[in-house]
């Protein structure tokens, strides 16, 4: 059966319009719900860097803990405006950082249960792995030196290789590492190769087969810890003075 050109073109146009309409309707009607899920997931990732035992808890519960125990401040130590915070997108701030433009660098303070002291400082990070974006939350103990826990996530690293930065087993390698060596900032560095033991405090066992992802990861950690350096140094000296 051979149809006329007009029919073919008409069919194509009609199909485009109908499919386009259906798709935009789906996207618009699900948009709200997707945004909620993303926000919940971000809260979950932040919380898991300090409370890994909550990984199995429902997200609503994690969000509750987040709302009651997390305070967000800027790099100057001042609270960030709620309106700014709501729109804050770490990936957009990262793009500004890359262009050496001033960016908002939030610090998520994890407060003790009674809210009197800070248990942990969580630093959000964003960067580029091998194939696509990677990001993470880097939690420091209240001494602003020891790593309490990290959470990394990624958009499209190779499953089984680079994607392992999302595995808890790999992230746990960071726990207990130090970021300051003799008062100098030395961002924890993931080494090449895997299975090494007895590494110094500023080195982390690497991922075999995922060296390029690890390089991206190291760059991200390095860039952000350096950005947060003023805050960390001020905090660290305050802590050491108090001792």
């Amino acid at each position: 059966m051979q149809q006329s050109n007009g029919y073919v073109i008409g069919f194509a146009v009609a199909m485009t319009v109908i499919l386009g309409g259906i798709l935009s309707f789906t996207a618009v009607s699900l948009n709200e719900r997707q945004k909620e899920e993303v926000a919940l997931d971000t809260k979950k990732q932040i919380m898991l860097s300090v409370l890994p035992e909550m990984s199995e808890s429902p997200k609503s519960e994690i969000a509750k803990v987040y709302d009651s125990r997390i305070q967000v401040v800027g790099i100057d130590g001042q609270a960030i405006d709620a309106a700014v915070l709501e729109k804050l997108d770490i990936s957009k701030e990262w793009k500004k950082l890359k262009k050496n433009q001033p960016a908002i660098l939030p610090i998520y303070k994890f407060m003790s249960k009674d809210g009197s002291s800070v248990e942990s400082y969580i630093l959000p990070m964003y960067g580029y792995g091998l194939w696509n974006d990677i990001w993470g939350y880097f939690a420091l103990e209240s001494d602003m030196n020891t790593v309490k826990g990290v959470v990394f996530s990624h958009k499209g690293e190779t499953p089984g290789l680079g994607a392992r930065i999302g595995d808890k087993e790999v992230q746990d390698r960071y726990i207990g590492k130090k970021i300051f060596v003799n008062g100098e900032l030395k961002p924890t560095f993931m080494v090449k190769g895997e299975g090494k033991t007895g590494l110094p405090d500023y080195e982390v066992d690497g991922l075999s087969g995922a060296t390029l992802t690890a390089i991206g990861l190291n760059e991200m950690v390095d860039r952000y810890l350096n950005q947060y350096k003023p805050f960390l140094e001020k905090g660290a000296s305050a802590v050491s003075m108090a001792q």
């Binding site: 789906t26 699900l30 899920e37």
Partner: peptide
């Protein structure tokens, strides 16, 4: 894909 993102995000 959109439905999964909205209801089964993980």
């Amino acid at each position: 894909d959109q439905v999964l993102k909205a209801y089964l995000y993980d």
